[in-house]
Design a protein around this nucleic acid. Sequence first.
DNA 1: CTGAAAGCGCTAACAC
DNA 2: GTGTTAGCGCTTTCAG
Lengths: 351, 351
Amino acid sequence: MPERGAVTLADVARLAGVSLATASRALNGSTRKVRPESVDRVQAAALELRYTANVQAQAVARGTTTTLALVVGDIADPYFAAIAAGAIRAADDAGLVVTITSTGGDPAREAAVLGVVAGLRPRAVVLAVSRRLGAGLTSGGSDSAAAVGALVAAGAGVSALVSDLDGAAAGVPGVHGVVIRNLSGAAALAGALVEQGHDSFAVLSGDPDLVTAHARVEGFVAGLAAHGIRVPDDSVVPSAFTRDGGYQAMVTLLDRAAAGSWVLPRCVFAVTDLMAVGAVAAIRERGLVPGVDVGVAGFDDVQMLADVVPALSTVRLPLEEIGERAVRRALGLEADGAIDGEVVLRASTAR
Amino acid sequence: MPERGAVTLADVARLAGVSLATASRALNGSTRKVRPESVDRVQAAALELRYTANVQAQAVARGTTTTLALVVGDIADPYFAAIAAGAIRAADDAGLVVTITSTGGDPAREAAVLGVVAGLRPRAVVLAVSRRLGAGLTSGGSDSAAAVGALVAAGAGVSALVSDLDGAAAGVPGVHGVVIRNLSGAAALAGALVEQGHDSFAVLSGDPDLVTAHARVEGFVAGLAAHGIRVPDDSVVPSAFTRDGGYQAMVTLLDRAAAGSWVLPRCVFAVTDLMAVGAVAAIRERGLVPGVDVGVAGFDDVQMLADVVPALSTVRLPLEEIGERAVRRALGLEADGAIDGEVVLRASTAR
DNA sequence: CTGAAAGCGCTAACAC
DNA sequence: GTGTTAGCGCTTTCAG
């Protein structure tokens, strides 16, 4: 056994008494045939030496890696974590290792991150980041689009999670969009709530620059409009796209109602489950009963929030499946396709 | 611009009119000096060609990678996701890219996963997986210990998250343990609950084979013992280490109490926040009021669960920090050190 | 079937 | 300062 550092193929070949080429063919699949006996000897030697092929060297020699890059906004966010879980599963099925890089939600960092990713020469890359309106894949003054273009040119399959309303995928040739139908999902939710008897609404719109947030608001408003219900402009309140943002926005609404200048709608739609949870907390803090005094609906159906009380009405998104499909799409294993959410009505809007 | 495939350093050197070596020195740091003018020319050429160094080739040539491998049980679990977030941040600070592989909680898959990881020749690896009692780093019949040993021999820094009570880190030389003091944390929680006035307890122990679960149970029981309170054996009920496991275990307890053969303790300790949430759901389903009729405490202080009602008493673990420290430890940037949890008393045990 | 040898893209002595 | 030239560990023609 070599002193230190890893065992190389040459070590194995020597011990097995065969050439480098034969050892390579025996160990790592090759179309060429090798005498069974040699294969055995090589495998035995590899085992004895605890040989593991150096993936980097293989990549250089083969000109292609076994890496799939996943770029997420924030891995601690359950939304992205669920997508990552699905992506890892699918990549694993394809024999690929996943590298995760995080933009931290900072669009300016995106180009830099993509540069690093490009250096990895991944077989495919999945972009699961919150896009900003009008930014396409280009943002923060830096040129993410160019980086993605380079990735594509270098032969990587790229797929980006996009919201309908998102021009991102269309902007860059070679990028496949896994579109999530936020628009119609939100519209369907609106319809379901109306049918449930709700007739006045407010919307916690999160960051209106985020395509996803924007699409959900648009869809919800349109869905209400189809039932003849209008949402006054001042009832759509922006905030951070987080739990605390939801809390703050709801506080704003409650304050306004308390001041008597405005009447609190019977139902509030938060563009995210997380934001909805924040809203519920705010409502409860005011001594009101969420789900009774004022209904709250979210979006995503984040698993971890299944036990919040009242149970959230929401639009279920098959997050893990989305991650899997994005990977399969990037690898060219699957055709483009949109993903629909499913309206789930629960206690938080039961009236 | 080359037809397809990536731009190489040679392309850049040619365009800049310098040698390969100079281009390399200009672009990727080197101790050697290069005339400023040449540097400019090379950088301009690189920019024009959209050159990005092939990380694999650099790794082969340098004999060392810029990769940090993170092995987790399940990235969708908020516990691991939080650790991953911290790890990614720390790795990023060190200029490393992190690859995440998941064992899916299957100990048998662990050895295989480690094999793949070894092929990556990572600079360091962080093992954040649920270890099983008595398994050390070896489990499922396969030899994870050997794989880790090979990793260490190949020069990778390795750090494993371990629970006190865990012999894992000690078993394999070269592996640094980031120990999480589950034992004392649980004991402290027990003490705090007793001081709060609770005097009869049950424990939802999760999977008793998992070191972490075991340590928390041990610690809790010991903590109670220090206050002269004994937990009858039949009041420690095992289950899956999940939200549903917590729910089931609590149902078992409630059924038993309903049958009149046993009296329900006033407080239940679940070894995980997730399990605690399941228990709360079970209690509520029976028409009892969690936190009033029966207290519930958890462990971890998972952020996502901050808004469950009643707010959970728990032991806060700085998960992201743990991820960061594990990385820094594996890289040899920080000395070994244990991490303590902090008892947080909230409404779920307010009586 | 097997081996010798030419790369893969890049770095690091070693000259000039 | 800069260029030449060996490698790094592995794959893959191209001859045997």
